[in-house]
């Protein structure tokens, strides 16, 4: 050992200072912790967006379109419930998807392309897989946060008529997490292409929003457009939400399909995302 100088009395060395088992086990949580800390800097924007978005949709579609639809059906919309009630599960699932989408795409671009902060993480005990997990955990938390705000706004607006309305939150969140995993895998795959994020917004998010049985039952559109709904996590979650919330009449096999589709899609996408990020970060 070399002579230890004055300032270094406390220097014990990493073998003593670091609890390597803990570092290895909880790397995913430290990544999440970092993202949450970053998010807290924008918390007012997250809340404002969380409240502002539903209020806008409520005012225009819920009340505006809703009054037309309800007028047409003697005070009731599709499925024999008020239009706002019909719309609520779709809006919740959309909010979940929108917020988890933002939480997996932008941080990943930030981490691997714009600022390289993910490379700083993998210089520690953290692994690329744990980064993917941590990002998904925060996407889940942010999605949940946004969805709950949305739910409260909808409740105040009178969209819910039974306690089962709470179940629309988990239904929406399954879609949020599942879609986030898909987006994470896609972001990692196309991270070097210039217009990836803008294209996703235009060519994926918007059509999903339009054709997933959001504003009208999927059966109302021509059969050759319905496939968008069938592959869309949003439709599966919306339909599931309607079943859980107000008991929409849907065959049992279809309810099971909704749940299985979302879980399998999310799981497969997450495995692919982990492979992508490991490949990208360990050249």
């Amino acid at each position: 050992m070399t002579v230890v100088s004055e300032q270094s009395r406390t220097w014990q060395g990493a073998l003593k200072v670091v609890d390597s088992q803990r570092a290895i086990r909880f790397g995913w949580w430290y990544v999440a912790e970092y993202r949450l800390r970053n998010l807290m800097k924008w918390i007012s924007a997250v809340i404002a967006f969380g409240i502002g978005n539903p209020v806008l949709y409520l005012a225009s579609i819920g009340f505006g379109v809703g009054s037309l639809v309800n007028h047409h059906g003697n005070g009731l919309g599709p499925d024999g419930v008020p239009y706002l009630t019909f719309l609520a599960p779709a809006l919740l699932a959309t909010a979940a998807i929108q917020s988890t989408f933002e939480e997996v795409t932008f941080p990943t671009m930030h981490g691997l392309k714009w600022e390289n902060v993910y490379y700083a993480m993998t210089a520690t005990a953290v692994t690329p897989n744990q980064i993917a997990t941590g990002v998904m955990v925060v996407a889940f938390l942010r999605g949940l946060f946004t969805t709950i705000i949305y739910w409260v706004v909808l409740a105040i607006a009178g969209a819910f008529h039974s306690p089962t309305a709470l179940l629309a939150i988990p239904a929406g969140m399954i879609a949020g997490v599942s879609f986030a995993a898909v987006m994470l895998a896609l972001t990692l795959r196309f991270i070097d292409s210039q217009n990836f994020l803008a294209s996703i917004g235009r060519f994926v998010i918007t059509p999903l929003f339009m054709f997933s049985g959001t504003f009208f039952p999927l059966s109302a559109i021509p059969i050759w457009l319905r496939w968008i709904g069938w592959i869309s996590p949003l439709w599966h979650a919306t339909d599931l939400g309607r079943v859980l919330m107000y008991g929409r009449a849907v065959p049992g096999w279809l309810v099971a399909t909704h749940a299985i589709y979302l879980v399998v899609l999310g799981a497969v996408a997450f495995i692919i995302a982990q492979r992508q990020i490991t490949k990208k970060m360990t050249k």
Binding site: A14, L15, V18, S20, A23, I24, G27, E33, Y34, R37, N38, K41, E115, N116, V117, Y119, A120, T122, A123, T124, A125, V126, T127
Partner: peptide, 28 residues
């Protein structure tokens, strides 16, 4: 991961988090 837990790495290009402060960068 075990080895990296005991190393310190100074990369060729700084990859500090620009959205965080000096102290926060060290803390995180």
């Amino acid at each position: 991961p075990w080895i990296r837990a005991h190393l310190g790495v100074v990369p060729q290009q700084d990859n500090l988090d620009r959205e965080l402060t000096v102290t926060e960068n060290l803390y995180i």
